[in-house]
Design a protein around this nucleic acid. Sequence first.
DNA 1: GTCTATAATTTGATAGAC
DNA 2: GTCTATCAAATTATAGAC
Lengths: 184, 184
Amino acid sequence: MRRTAERLMDLAERRMREAGYHGFSFRDLAAEIGIKSASVHHHFPTKAEMVIAIMHRHNERFAELVTPKVGETPADVVQAYRNAFRRSLTEKGGMCLNGLFGAESGGLPPELLTQVEQFFVSAAADLAKRIGGPDAETRAFAILALLEGALILARAHGDVAAFDKATADLAAAEDDERTRKVAA
Amino acid sequence: MRRTAERLMDLAERRMREAGYHGFSFRDLAAEIGIKSASVHHHFPTKAEMVIAIMHRHNERFAELVTPKVGETPADVVQAYRNAFRRSLTEKGGMCLNGLFGAESGGLPPELLTQVEQFFVSAAADLAKRIGGPDAETRAFAILALLEGALILARAHGDVAAFDKATADLAAAEDDERTRKVAA
DNA sequence: GTCTATAATTTGATAGAC
DNA sequence: GTCTATCAAATTATAGAC
């Protein structure tokens, strides 16, 4: 069944969100779902390939989560991104994989790093386009940085409240930008 | 000589900033400075103890870097923090150790996580006290999150410019807060 | 798809000589 | 402080039977 492959990916993803690329081994996964590590290799030849598949799936899901809504305001867009990141914490048990791999990028497979960079490039471009206004690209970078950092604070404090605190002014700030534009 | 211990710490710190807690082994370090791994254990009994010593040293240095200046404005304080974080990238070769360990906290020694949490608690308190104004604590969280996330973006893009872009509006925003207060 | 068996390497760590 | 020698465990991965 392809179901086993998905369970393996789910499990590996969760472990990595908690502890990074080295946060799981094939033996770990195998033990938890009741098979042997050799069987994991049947579904994913190497660990690198497995992680790349996980990242691919994750980035597709992320794109769906922040898909544009008709009539959205810039504040709506920022809220959609904020909610998507927050879900990492509350439903996936930890960090954004792209942020995590960006942080520990030094020892990771190059193909993985390509995916990570690509994620940030397209997320920044998408955000910038949808919030618009002056310096949209700079503000998009700031928003992505704030969200990644807010996840770190929440992990360090062991409390989602830290994420909420760090991002409390996010939507309000974007409303300010709007007001400023309208006023000008 | 205590000199060897320091060289080991320097090397290990750099590797961890690039690739996280699992970014070096005692053998790596030993090979690079021309001794054997058993000799590294003479200076640091275990890896966990070594990393804790590195964190201790790092957090002391950080406190010095952002030490209060007489007559500082809130914008000055934020700039001092921004510069301290930026130095991680330009002089230390990578992430802030606290941010990195917060991100991959799942598989780390508990004593290390205690230090990480403590760092963020005291940094937020210090920042909040020195920038003052309404919601100082919330803004302090946002500033720390932005700085950590900006490091991630720079690592992911492989370019310090991403850090600068993400933090471009930081000091300006703090000036806004001041203006707002004065105007009120 | 899963198993047994096993290889090759790496890792954190220790004992004891010099 | 450094070395040789060594350990036990873990990790990624492969070959081939069922």
